[in-house]
Design a protein around this nucleic acid. Sequence first.
DNA 1: TCATTAAATTTGT
DNA 2: ACAAATTTAATGA
Length: 220
Amino acid sequence: MEKHSCLILVPLFNHMDEHDLEKIYSLTKQRTYKKGEQIFKPYDQQQLTIVAKGRMKVYQLSGSGREQLLRVVETGEYEGESALFGVKNDSLFAEALQETVVCTLAHHDFQKLLLTYPQISLRLLETNAEKLSSAQHQAQFLVMEAIETRLAVYLLELAKENDRLTFELPMKMKELAGFLGTTPETLSRKFKLLSDKALIRRERQKITLLDPEELEDCYV
DNA sequence: TCATTAAATTTGT
DNA sequence: ACAAATTTAATGA
């Protein structure tokens, strides 16, 4: 593992020089989690959590105890920046999807950093704006009544992110179902529907969009 | 690597 | 939505 891998990976810090990174690094704690281990839970100490290697899922629990997946945090991404401004985490859980290395930065240390390095503040505003818009998008998802539409939108998004028509689902069907606000059973049937219409091809978790344009029309 | 078992997914009701 | 059937992944020899 690279000495400063967790910092280099993060847009928030990767523009800084060696000396500054060293300083920031001394404020972080690093830990490795095995698959399925819990990385944080509600009411943990407020901190920024950076994924240096592996992936983690961030979710909350609905009233009935069902797991609602919010996002999958990939290597180089992070979670919890709002906690750094003092927003309490009272509902979020995070769990490693595979062997995962995370670096954490405590709330109060981060505030000190912001004072020393104002550039970081600007970066933070940028990335935060991105998250906000994706959160709004997600909210839009849940308003759409047709699951098929949500799925279509989601698949198109993935294709866009990957710049390919063939890609792997980043999460299990069960989790995707929760993410889209449906059940695994329904999701399975919707996938079959899209396959039957020859809009997509699917083998395990590998998805190929055969007809992205037609898929767009589900948008309506 | 293969067999066994557990977990996840699909299909029928 | 539930349960049975099928498929895929995990585990241990």
